[in-house]
C-alpha cells in the first residue's frame, strides 16, 4: 500500500514539473491550457481517491468531491478558452 502511495507522490511531483515546464516553454496560451488542466485533474483525482482514500468510500462523498473537481476545472478551462477566442 505504501509503495503505491510513494509512486502516487512521485507522479504528483512529476505532473507539477510538467505543468511548470509547459508554462515556461514558448507555447501559445491555447497550447498549454488543456495539458495543464489535465495534469490538474489527474493530480486532484490522486489526492481525492488515494490520499483522502475516498475510492471505495460510502456514496456520495467520493462523487461529490470528484464532481467538484471536474466542474471547477472544467469551468476554469471554459473561461480561459473563452478569453482566448
Amino acid at each position: 500500500m505504501m509503495k503505491a502511495a510513494t509512486f502516487q507522490w512521485l507522479i504528483l511531483l512529476a505532473m507539477t514539473a510538467v505543468a511548470v515546464g509547459l508554462s515556461q516553454a514558448s507555447l501559445s496560451d491555447n497550447a498549454i491550457l488543456a495539458p495543464v488542466l489535465l495534469t490538474t485533474l489527474v493530480k486532484g483525482r490522486i489526492v481525492i481517491d488515494r490520499f483522502m482514500a475516498l475510492q471505495g468510500a460510502i456514496a456520495p462523498w467520493r462523487w461529490i468531491v470528484l464532481g467538484w473537481l471536474v466542474v471547477v476545472v472544467g469551468l476554469i478551462g471554459f473561461a480561459f478558452h473563452m478569453a482566448q477566442t
Binding site: 505543468a19 498549454i32 495534469t39
Partner: peptide, 23 residues
C-alpha cells in the same frame, strides 16, 4: 486531521496552475 490537510492540498493543486501557470 488527514482529511482536512488533504483538502488544503487539493485546493492548492488548483490554485497554483490557475494563478501562477495558466495565461
Amino acid at each position: 486531521g488527514a482529511a482536512y490537510w488533504h483538502m488544503v492540498d487539493l485546493v492548492w493543486i488548483i490554485l497554483f496552475p490557475l494563478i501562477y501557470v495558466l495565461h
